[in-house]
Design a protein around this nucleic acid. Structure first.
Lengths: 187, 187
DNA sequence: GTTAAAACAGACCGATCGACCTGTTTGTTT
DNA sequence: AAACAAACAGGTCGATCGGTCTGTTTTAAC
């Protein structure tokens, strides 16, 4: 159920996906689904916490945490994501960004759930920055700003890639971000 | 009609906004609206070409075109947008990004309409880059990449600002982008 | 083996969706 | 003033929306 919902939310968006569509993608009955997810919002919350958040941890947080350098980690994440796009032959965007854009003005609970993932993501980057020689010299605000800029650049690049259906913006941003990190001595 | 539709699309998104809601926001009848906009898609197309595109031209393209330097132009655009957010007390995001995120996977015609605005936006930045001393030395691909990175950074910063409902990501990105432009000698 | 709760099936509800259709009014052309 | 088309009014269509209902099956505890 969560797999089907996260796939459809990713493919068509939250509002454009009906409960019946999700149910049809599984072998469950409407009653069974209603038993576990009384409302569509509860399904979205479950998708966010059990699918979107783990996806961000796996694709971004862990690679950055274990990378030899911040620059290598960020570059590698971009490369992996670009590889995934090439494999699928379609840019469906970042699940977190997609849902955040659509829902953060609509539903407070969903916005908070999504915001906490952004928070976790940015915190992980700040942590990794603070482990670099240059990062130790920076103030907390400077580290936070650098982390936010990385998240924003990636997010925007993915949006642009989705809008144009080309991976080029991601490739461009991978390179520009790598240069920026070098300039900031955060490599 | 276009004003009401663009406002509601911006506030609630395309799919979350019903035709009746748009009609109720005007003094028109359903029949009158149907006469001019037979389908919801035709309304969206009109909003994109007659409201979203002019908004991008006014808020981004013209300021950058007439700025003393690219860096000053970009910084000024960010400042104006941040000011608008402070005035409204809410981050409703970039109209172009909002619609692009929601519709580029759903509807081909709408995606093309939105993509052409991104194209125009990026072209204007490339043009401005090519007018700088350093820009003249760059290849076309390098200019294109720099323009895409600017668009991506802004887009992502706005998304992050919308998701967190704080202008901080925009302020952070304004500064980081200004530094980056200086480093690239594109100021 | 009995029982109670959890899980599931599937018909069904009112509400709302986008779109349509028949008239009527308004404006323009001759 | 007559004729015609564009613009508008407002009721209504079938489809689909999210959500609910009753009843059956499965699971697990004692």
């Amino acid at each position: 159920m969560l797999d089907a919902a996260s796939m459809l939310f990713q493919a068509h968006g939250y509002h454009a996906t009906g409960m019946r569509e999700v149910i049809a993608a599984t072998r469950l009955s409407p009653g069974a689904v209603h038993h576990h997810f009384p409302t569509k919002e509860s399904l979205a919350i479950a998708v966010i916490t059990d699918r979107v958040a783990p996806a961000v941890r796996e694709s971004w947080i862990e690679p950055v945490r274990h990378a030899a350098s911040l620059r290598q980690g960020v570059t590698r994440v971009f490369t992996e994501i670009i590889r995934g796009i090439d494999d699928r032959g379609q840019v469906s965007g970042c699940p977190l960004n997609n849902l955040a854009m659509e829902l953060s003005l609509t539903n407070v609970r969903l916005r908070d759930a999504l915001r906490s993932i952004f928070r976790e993501w940015q915190d992980a980057l700040e942590q990794r920055i603070s482990e670099t020689p240059r990062g130790k010299q920076m103030t907390k605000n400077q580290r936070s700003a650098a982390a936010a800029f990385i998240v924003a650049s990636y997010s925007g690049a993915m949006n642009l890639a989705k809008a144009t259906q080309e991976p080029t913006p991601l490739k461009v941003t991978r390179r520009a971000l790598a240069h920026w990190l070098t300039e900031q001595r955060l490599s």
